[in-house]
Design a protein around this nucleic acid. Structure first.
Lengths: 346, 346
DNA sequence: CTGAAAGCGCTTACAG
DNA sequence: CTGAAAGCGCTTACAG
């Protein structure tokens, strides 16, 4: 039913090797033969069996992409952009969803890499360092960390191989500075932060980045209130509710889109108007953020750049057997001011 | 670097065959041997090479999913739900994005199926019937149509094999009836429709479904104005602009989320307030639709059910060598009334 | 209950 | 310039 190399060879009256070489464009095959082989292959609709090719060449031309939550539009868009980049380079993308679960992440990592299902993996890591990631890193597998850092302690070879993993994520520095300045300029003094989980490296990094930006803009450290979320909508709702009940900030910064949406829902539920009673800034952007009531001010991640860097980095890693450290790529976030920030109420 | 079956066999002091059978849980292997083999395999971190396994068993335990636009949150969520279902059954999902391009779709179809990269494909077809789809269907490949129908003319075996493709999509019937009734009850008489492209089967089907629902609710056929979009935000904007300038409806129905968002943007740009000056209903839903200004009334597709049906159907197709026709699955859409519909202005 | 051997469909040295 | 042969890492009849 399916056309094999052998069928093409028989139909063209040449050997398997000739077909393989001709289709690969190898100049050793005469132009006449090559042309005939290609014509026959097209006519029969021949497509090489990818398992056989992968087994022989030890390269699958597939990449694994493990994201923490595909339902988050940020990761949906990112997955799309990565697929587009990878397709341009002749690679397929196997999409995996860890759902923020370290065990699911490790299963995917080990099955895909140790099982040679893919040549490399782009990983949005769920928590700091899982056994699977450690194993995979010290086996020298091709892994690029995406969107989130990991923290590594110790000096063993395992720790060093983890540290050697290239990392692609956005830099919110300048955008956060703009956001913080906007808030202080408007007169905000008490700021709530809905952060990622603080037991993850990203959580600690974001907390520090946001805190530093606010302090640099003149907010007193004791007037910054951090409430933990878990990246999802409901946690943004809960964290915001806590901030309202315990801290009474006049502005809130939420560390991703879903938590920002959750925050807005919580503010609504408490009868607070944005920006009149509360200013709100979140991370990530989407084409519909300006249709919200009110349009959301955000720190937008550069999705296309992230996708490009991620694919370029993993491909460099695949080409390079030398293992020389690749430069980390950190494209800048963009601050997009819309109307969810205003002067604090009395 | 990577552990092979052979390494496990050597370490356990048995043959390759024994390892393979033991790991497969074959009862022919004594419990003692099996236990020892499994322990050794775990210790060494053995994972079967998927290319070798696929080559030998002629089954990859991978599914292809070709969507038309991952940036559309509907497909993002759907892809996530499908990945979850598939993972539960031990299948990986290769995500492909056709970007509504028939050639890209055909490339993916042929490479994945003729190249045996996957066991089956879930396809959101871009347009009616492409050469690739025709080829793949008549070769007996395992394909399930998702979310969109195709139309098939003729009686050849090719046409029949296309007609035999199982199809999973939602049924908007009841939800549309509720939507139409709501509009007429509110007093709307002139309705604009932002439809999918009318040269696609889905476009024609949706136009008819919406028209029928509106007529059944009492709208005169000549007061229904259909403007074509292409599934994306900008086309919703353009189509809505046309409707405003040429037809002056008092309510608009947009056939998917991005076009609904585009419609809302166009209404804003024209200084129209929703629902005071114009009522708006769209298809698909998202957790943030109730934060829009105004919260959007929609016809929500049952994403989980679609994912479940799609995966169940393709797995049934893979198991079944008999080729008996599978029942089409059409879970119902849900009408979600929010505040984007109101009494028409004078 | 276990092992030796064949073979899935390719690619690639090696001959000629 | 082309072909015969080996081998990638598995699984599975077939012996014993």
């Amino acid at each position: 039913m399916v056309v094999r190399l052998r069928d093409v060879a028989a139909a063209a009256g040449v050997s398997d090797a000739t077909v393989s070489l001709a289709l690969a464009g190898n100049p050793r095959i005469s132009a006449a033969t090559a042309q005939r082989v290609i014509a026959v292959a097209n006519e029969l609709g021949y497509r090489p069996n990818s398992a056989a090719r992968a087994l022989r060449t030890e390269s699958t031309r597939s990449l694994g992409l493990i994201v923490s939550d595909v339902a988050n539009p940020f990761f949906g868009e990112l997955a799309g952009a990565i697929e587009r980049q990878a397709a341009r380079e002749g690679y397929s993308v196997i999409l995996c969803n860890s759902d923020e679960d370290a065990d699911r992440q490790d299963d995917y990592l080990l099955n895909m890499l140790a099982g040679s299902q893919v040549d490399g993996v782009l990983l949005v890591p769920t928590s700091s360092t899982t056994p699977g990631l450690r194993a995979v890193a010290s086996s020298g597998a091709k892994v690029v960390l995406l969107d989130r850092p990991i923290t590594v302690s110790g000096n063993g070879t395992a720790a060093n191989s983890l540290r050697a993993l290239p990392s692609v994520s956005s830099d919110p520095g300048r955008a956060l500075a703009e956001a913080a300045e906007l808030l202080t300029t408007l007169g905000h003094e008490r700021i709530g932060v809905v952060s990622p989980p603080l037991d993850t490296p990203l959580g600690r990094v974001r907390r520090k980045q946001i805190r530093d930006a606010l302090v640099a803009a003149g907010v007193r450290s004791r007037d910054i209130f951090v409430e933990e979320g878990d990246f999802r909508l409901n946690s943004g709702y809960r964290a915001t509710t806590k901030l309202l009940e315990q801290r009474r900030p006049t502005a809130i910064i939420a560390a991703d889109g879903p938590m920002g949406v959750g925050a807005l829902k919580a503010l609504r539920a408490h009868g607070l108007r944005v920006p009149h009673d509360m200013s709100l800034i979140c991370f990530d952007d989407a084409p519909w953020f300006d249709l919200f009531d009110p349009p959301l001010t955000t720190i937008a991640q550069p999705i296309e750049e992230l996708a490009k860097s991620a694919v370029a980095t993993i491909l460099a890693l695949l080409r390079d057997e030398t293992g020389k450290q690749l430069p980390a790529a950190h494209p800048e976030c963009r601050f997009i001011r819309r109307s969810s920030c205003g002067v604090p109420a009395e």
